[in-house]
Write a protein that binds this DNA or RNA. Structure first.
Lengths: 142, 142
DNA sequence: TATTGTTATACTCTATAACTATA
DNA sequence: TATAGTTATAGAGTATAACAATA
């Protein structure tokens, strides 16, 4: 079918991601957050210890300056707090507030529903295949 | 492996697209264009007749106003010309200039190399599978 | 001197709303 | 009145460079 053409694959990927971002933005808007903010919140949650800015930025694949904007919004929304690391006063530890903990599941639900809609045309086995292929393309450093 | 989790699929998609966009931007930067501009140029080329703004916007999956910015840049770079449609003086026909024709292949090459790099870890058969899965998720209206 | 994060700034890609010219 | 496109504006998601505070 010619689907192996990398430029066409690139375009498909581009269109799909745009659609996904829109759907997620719509679902998350009532909660006052963007997809990037939800991602950051989710990764903070997933950490055992409160992560530092640099650490979280790296896990998100963005530069620290870009994370600053994301965390600013989460802090203003009262979901995350910045704490100076007592063991290294240059570093900042990111911690969920009580409110952050409370809305976390709601956020995840909203994002899951959006993703569910997008991937609905695929049966579980096909999703598994897709995930496998995509993860083989994934660069853990990025 | 749990790859069928739609939220994880969404994150994979997001990271991959970002990496692709970066790689494409890098490759295209020496030519002074962005990926969106290359896409528009490519679709103008692919048309038999010079497309109109509305028509091209729809094929790109963006609103006409967003296309205006893209075409502004291509026109300023001397690659595309706007012509008023003599049969409907409200409409604008988009045509490649000689220079646009000349750089078209270079652009496509640059974009192809970026896409090639990204999809290099997959064998042709796997690319085919990926393309098939992605196209089943693709919404032709979008 | 090197590390951590922020201030300042900018760019890409996209959107909605209001407007102009034409049909 | 409806259509085609643009001006005006905005916002998400990034980036680089220069800087301050701390190590």
């Amino acid at each position: 079918m010619g689907y192996e053409d990398p430029v066409q694959l690139a375009d498909l990927l581009h269109r799909l991601t745009r659609r996904l971002r829109r759907a997620q933005a719509e679902r998350l808007a009532p909660l006052g957050l963007t997809p990037a903010q939800e991602r950051a919140l989710r990764l903070i949650t997933r950490s055992d210890d409160p992560p530092r800015m640099t650490e979280l930025a790296e896990r998100l694949g963005i530069v620290p300056r870009s994370l600053t904007t994301v965390i600013d919004a989460l802090e203003e929304a009262g979901l995350v707090s910045r704490e100076i690391d007592p063991r290294n006063r240059r570093a900042i530890l990111l911690r969920l507030t009580d409110r952050g903990l409370a809305v976390r599941d709601e956020l995840r639900e909203a994002r899951r529903r959006a993703a569910d809609d997008l991937f609905a045309p695929l049966a579980p086995a096909d999703r598994e295949t897709l995930g496998d292929l995509l993860s083989r393309l994934d660069d853990p450093r990025c």
